[in-house]
Design a binder for these strands. Structure first.
Lengths: 122, 122
DNA sequence: CGCATATAAACCCAAGTAGTTAATTAACTA
DNA sequence: TAGTTAATTAACTACTTGGGTTTATATGCG
């Protein structure tokens, strides 16, 4: 039930066809037919993917005669990058145990971080 | 249909509950019960979210007595950040090149059809 | 052993998604 | 005006997902 913007964006990106469409749009605007060409898929299927991308704000469309030209929009991608950056230290640190990281920010706490009062027995 | 790793990761992240779980794990390892506490949701529901996160490689679990401690894993998040970086110039360049391209194919009396205008004088 | 706690598994259900083909709208062209 | 092309909408099927309950399993303790 992704109601928030970031969830909508990530859901839209969680499909290889849609990411391929975005990659194609990196080269410039494109009509729907041209976008559909690389895929072994009917036009309506591509059209639905485009609607998902548009709803997520990842593309915009404009009419040009009988064509609809699609264009990539960067803002939601920036949100994704910004969100992921929060976790940079997780993949950059060589720590085997995040406990060590925790101790850096809460030095006096010897307990585990759960709020339950059970003590470990080993 | 996400068979590839990145699609699986993005699908797992496209849920606010699961992102909240990851944010919580940023503070350190945590039992399932402690992770579930902030959510108005049954334990099995949380357990399912954890399974999705684990399948995506975003967390790992270890048994500790009757507890399962969850730990965040950074590698898939790095993949997301790396993927998004490909599009950095899209959100940083304010689409100068695409504007130029647009002007080539449509004279300046064309009308925007949908969203906010990215047209700017520069 | 018997009970409590922690978590997972199995099953149901409603809603969403991804694809299809067929029909429809919109715009150009002759 | 009719015909062609571009793209979307409609109607349908199959599958997945996120939630719920209920049941099962594993561990620790008295």
């Amino acid at each position: 039930m992704p109601l928030d913007q970031l969830s909508t964006t990530l859901a839209a990106l969680a499909d290889p066809t849609r990411r391929a469409i975005l990659a194609r749009l990196l080269m410039g605007e494109c009509s729907v037919t041209a976008l559909a060409e690389p895929f072994d898929m009917s036009m309506p299927a591509v059209s639905k993917h485009l609607r998902v991308l548009e709803r997520a704000g990842l593309i915009s469309r404009r009419r040009d005669a009988q064509f609809r030209h699609c264009r990539i929009e960067g803002a939601p991608l920036k949100d994704v990058a910004t969100w992921a950056e929060r976790y940079r230290h997780v993949w950059e640190s060589r720590l085997d145990r995040l406990d060590t990281y925790l101790e850096q920010i809460t030095p006096k706490n010897e307990k585990r971080h759960g709020r339950q009062s059970h003590r470990k027995s080993r």
